[in-house]
Structures are given as C-alpha cells and as structure tokens.
C-alpha cells in the first residue's frame, strides 16, 4: 500500500529549512517544511509577501538547494544530486512560468515556444509549437518579438513554452500577478485546462483567490512555515 502511494508521489519535501546569510545575519526563509504533492495534482501555495512562497518554488525547481532537509522529485533527492542532473530533470520534466514572463527577448513567439523542444531533441517542434500557439489564440502573433506583445500575450506565450515539451509538472510563480482581470481569467483557465488535458501537475504561487479555488489543494505559508 505504502509503495503504491509512493509511486503516486511527485514531490516529497522532508523537514526543509532554508537560511540566507546576509550581512553577517542568518535569515530563516523556510522553517521545517513537510508536504507531499501527488502526480496530476493542482496545488496553490499562498501567503503574504515575504512568507517564502517563491523560495519554496525555487527549491522545488532545483534552482536552489535547501540548507537542511530533502526534496524528492519522482523519488530522486534534488538536494543530493549534481547540478547537471538537476538541470536535466528541469529540462525534461519541469515547466516554469514567472510573473515577469522571462521570454527570450530576441526570439519570436514561435521560436520561444520551439526552444525547449529543440533542447530536448523533440521532433517536429515547429509544427507542435504552431499548434500550441493556435490553441492559445496567438497564431497571428507567432512572428512577433516579446517586446511587441501585450503582457497577457507574453504570459500566454510563456505558458505555451512551459507546456510545449510535455513536462510532468508546471511550477508557476504568480503567473497572473502582472495581468488585468480579463487576462488573469484567460491565463488561469489556460493553466488549469492544460493541467487536466495533458495530465500535468500544477504547483502555483498566487494571490489570486479565483485561481486558488480552481486548485485541488492549498498550502498556506506564514513567516516561512506551513500554517495549518
């Protein structure tokens, strides 16, 4: 029974602590974080600014290592394996979405969406990218550079880029934080729908309660700890 449960686990965070050493002082960013996230689950992480939400997401994406504790992704301890291995996992299995979009500035929408497929050696990347862009209603903007798109369009391209290579999980950091109401709705629906449609787990940090309600579970952070 336990083994079957473990097979369903996507993430397991075990007694995680994260400290930053700034100007001679230790700042405790995360304290004793323990939780499990299952495959195909949609989890919202909420909390006040400075409560450690983004730091938690950074740990889960392997961009940061915890001070103590272990983060298991598909039973692999991200805090113990090499940086190269973590990069490979991120490249193949984790899609990232940011509040500031972070599209490649010199690449068109199409090229941005194609890029993760190219580095993952996925064939017919152009065709697939075109399909995704049509799906999100941006086929007519495929040859535009990010600087020529609106904020909502940029975030939709970022989502298209994140799902283009069929990752196991999407980690989104305040994906609607920079968007208006209409675009917030559009982007929220896109994320949730894709998560269901492609059976991709979704872990998002957000202040948007509408989006929170669409998730299966909520993890609330307060001053670096999980508030029950």
């Amino acid at each position: 029974m336990n083994k079957r449960l473990e097979m369903k686990n996507l993430y397991k965070l075990d007694n995680i602590h994260l400290n930053y050493h700034v100007n001679g002082n230790d700042i405790k960013v995360l304290k004793n974080i323990n939780f499990v996230i299952n495959k195909n689950e949609r989890v919202a992480i909420i909390g006040e600014s400075g409560s450690g939400k983004t730091s938690l997401l950074m740990l889960m994406s392997g961009l940061e290592k915890p001070t103590t504790g272990s983060i298991f992704f598909n039973n692999e301890n991200l805090s113990k394996i090499s940086e190269e291995k973590v990069t490979q996992i991120r490249r193949k299995k984790i899609g990232l979405i940011f509040q500031q979009f972070y599209l490649l500035p010199n690449y068109t929408s199409l090229e941005n969406v194609m890029f993760p497929m190219q580095i993952n050696n996925i064939k017919n990347e152009k065709k697939k990218a075109n399909l995704i862009l049509s799906d999100i209603g941006l086929a007519h903007r495929k040859n535009n550079l990010p600087s020529e798109l609106s904020g909502g369009e940029q975030q939709r391209v970022a989502i298209a880029r994140a799902i283009s290579f069929n990752p196991e999980v999407i980690l989104a950091d305040e994906p609607t934080g920079n968007l208006d109401e209409k675009n917030t709705e559009l982007v929220s629906d896109l994320l949730i729908n894709y998560s269901f449609k492609k059976k991709i787990s979704l872990i998002l940090v957000t202040h948007n309660m509408g989006l929170v309600k669409k998730c299966d579970r909520v993890i609330k952070l307060f001053d670096g700890s999980i508030k029950v």
Binding site: E84, T87, Y102, L104, P116, I119
Partner: peptide
Amino acid sequence: VYQNLVLRILGFEKS
C-alpha cells in the same frame, strides 16, 4: 547575461 540566465532556467546546462 539575461538571455543566458533564461537559458539556464529552461534547462540549458552550464557546459
């Protein structure tokens, strides 16, 4: 720097 940072996040290895 910015472009290469994004490449790194998207899974492009250091090497």
